[in-house]
Amino acid sequence: MYRQKYLFLLPGLLVLVAIILFPLLFTIRVSFSSWDVYNPGLNWVGGENYGRLWEDARYWEALLRLTGLTVGTVLLQYTLGFALALLVWREVVARRLFRVLFLIPMMTTPVVMSVLWRTIFHESLGPLNPILEGIGIGAVPWLSQSTWSFIAVMIVEIWQWTPFMFLLLLAGLLSLPNEPFLAAKIDGAGPIRTFLSVTFPMLGAISVGAILIRLIEASKIMETVYVLTSGGPGTSTETSSYYIYIRGMRDFQIGYSAALSLTYLIIMIVTLTIVAKLLVRALVRDQA
């Protein structure tokens, strides 16, 4: 009778096994196989895929590129999101309207957003280059030159996800008590000092949460690269997710892409855990 209580756990355990454990274990098994378009199936090849991965410079370059892209975009998203949140935090004209306007990019699906930006960046037909020429900067090879393509991907990512930072940080700002700001004024702190000594530290926990969520999401960047540049020109905007997609879905090297995915997963878990601890130590006082 008493043992029957475990039956109630069964549905939850089954779901867990079905959606997490089975795919994970299956992927691990696949990563030790030579499954590809010519030899489908779980043929055991030991650590061959992992050995190949270790020497795959394109994979490590993609990972390095992803790191730069993630850190750069998230930092800029945080800075811009914070600035926008500060802008509409206090009494400003039409602040409700601005709050809604700032959220629109986030509400649009990444694919639609990327198609839109591809049109904007189009070097001969897009509206951006004529504007740049008009103000004397000149046309920019947005999608045909490596550095500019990388910048274009960054711009789209920042455009799309700054509202997320804005939303979280504005919610944080609105939840702050007013009294410490009064005290800071009396205690001789001007606006900049108040921001550095009161506003920013009081938003430490929310900042850590917002940055971590965005780091996790940004490290999976795929749609923007796929639609905007297809990883090009060459491999200059190829990220880890996109490279794994090419190996798995385009080249159909299932065993190898499983090894790539698992390695990528482990690197992300370790890196983000370390980053989380460092962020908490830096931004949240006495909790490190």
Partner: peptide
């Protein structure tokens, strides 16, 4: 501006900085 005035103030509410010891 208030931060330039040589004034100290204690208010009805217990106003302190919650993030500082």
């Amino acid at each position: 501006p208030p931060w330039k005035r040589p004034v100290a103030m204690v208010t009805q509410q217990f106003i302190n900085y919650p993030h500082l010891n």
